[in-house]
Design a protein around this nucleic acid. Sequence first.
DNA 1: CTACACTTCGGGAGAC
DNA 2: GTCTCCCGGAGTGTAG
Length: 608
Amino acid sequence: MSKLSPLMEQYYREKKQYPDALLLFRVGDFYETFAEDAVVVARDLNIVLTSRQKDDEGNKIPLAGIPYHLAGIPYHALDAYLARLIRAGHKVAICDQVEDPKLAHGLVKREITRVVTPGTIIEPAMLDEASNNFLAALVREEGMEGTEKTGRLGLALVDVSTGEFLTTEIDERSLGAELAKFRPAECIASFAPACECSRLQILDQAVFSRESASDALQSRYGEGWMDRLNLGDRPLSLRACGAILSYLHSTHFDALGHLRDVRHYSGSQFMVLDDVTLRNLEIIRNIRDRSRRGTLLEFLSRTRTAMGSRTLSRWIQMPLLSLDAIERRLSAVEELVNDPLLRESLAEELKGSADLERLMSRVSCGSASPKEMVVLRLSLARLPALQAILEKAGSTYLSDLRLRLSPCPEVVALLERSIADDPPSHLREGGVVKEGYHEEIDQLRSLLRDGRGWISALESKERDRSGIRSLKIAYNNVFGYYLEVSRANLHLVPPDYIRKQTLANAERFITPELKEMETRVLSAQERSVSLEQEIFASVRSTVAGYSLPIQERAAAMAELDVLAAGSNGRAGCAGSPGGSCLRERPGPAGVQPGGQNLPAGSTASRSG
DNA sequence: CTACACTTCGGGAGAC
DNA sequence: GTCTCCCGGAGTGTAG
């Protein structure tokens, strides 16, 4: 019988942990896929499907009777391909090399480090900045497993890309309206819901048990979680929240420092806009192509930040019912309408501000790049200016926002001191840590400067010695440092040069002293880069400790953005000078709080 | 036993 | 400027 190679044994060991996912298996510089996965990946990514062995005519054949196709992508291109696989509807498990190959005995150790699903992504390239990306969990009250759809449900929603975590308990017949509102990218459930539900997975009942949920909540929120999160008398919410945390854990998404406390909401706080209403009034998506073109959202979309556009879309879909809350918003908007200077300076300050919520999620998960850390600093550095602008605001909402926008001077100062102002986007070549932040880095860099200075001094010394005016010393990855002499001057080359490479118009040489200096320069370089990676990771994790306060400020910026955008739209309205029109109808008429205007039978069509 | 060829895709180096 | 080639890197397989 055929026997698998050690690598393939390792591959199948990992593969069987997530049989429903494509496994991207890191081998050297590539993420490989094998066998059936390779066939799928080659088709969906339009990359070459190859094989280890070829027959006499050069055709690819299976190895030892086992289909041994392979298709792979270089590791640095992972994000782009991952986005395409997720968009094509796949679940993708990433298996990485978890030990240094230089120190490994035999096969390098490999482990699955993340399972990427539509509801657990934090890569900006894979997300729409103007909408949330929710993962939903649904659990149904016991004893309701029959066919009637009258049970109570626990619904939990988490957006790991922003850290938002919401829950509610609802009647099963209003599920369609809830899902239409949040449009989760992925759902897990303890039962098969009667309405349309994207990327639905029905998981084992144990995941939704009270015990399992309690454990999951305790491990994220610590002792006292039940009171702090107010879940004591909401058993369905508790189970849904716990299930969602367990599911995140099963995808190795454990870096949840940025996940905020669970927020309860209830249908009675907001006007119910069911899926039919949302669709027919073209509030978020139009009827024709389901894009934003021509919708209310697009009409109102004057926000300056991504956070603001997400908040705006939430506000539109969940209109307030409380008169006090509506008044509060309107007073703020009115003040902004009447004070163009205030409005304009806020808009100006918000413009170009980064998506702090999503940045912080990436910081917290350890995936933020050096450039992203700089963007974070620049955005946080705007807080004092925003506060100063709001200094003269009189409405309670704007004054509250001013307080909520208090700066984070420690974080800004740390980033300012430690990260270069214009760092490279990745950590591979160093240049990330700022001069003066770390003594050893500074020493290594001065060593490197001396070494390079020595090499350029050698260049002029060798020019003088040989009389070759055009002689130059250069570097490439294949030969390291070398002396290059053009063809015309080859007769002048000193006898101690060692020839390494011949080009069309030149030859390349080395000398022992050049190679000796090269070794010193390269080892300093290597040490420097690995030290920079350590320092960067430690700065990032320090900043991650500020996730919650920074996300609180991000939320305040988002609200401010929506208010400023709303007032801008109003001021631009022909025939409505001032804000007088704002208060004609403070509360939407004819709304029944918590009313269920969606008959059970009218839930969205479903197939199968 | 060692040496070497070979395997995806992207990017850099070299040729023109 | 564009076009072409070959390396990255861990692992496998084969030739000597």
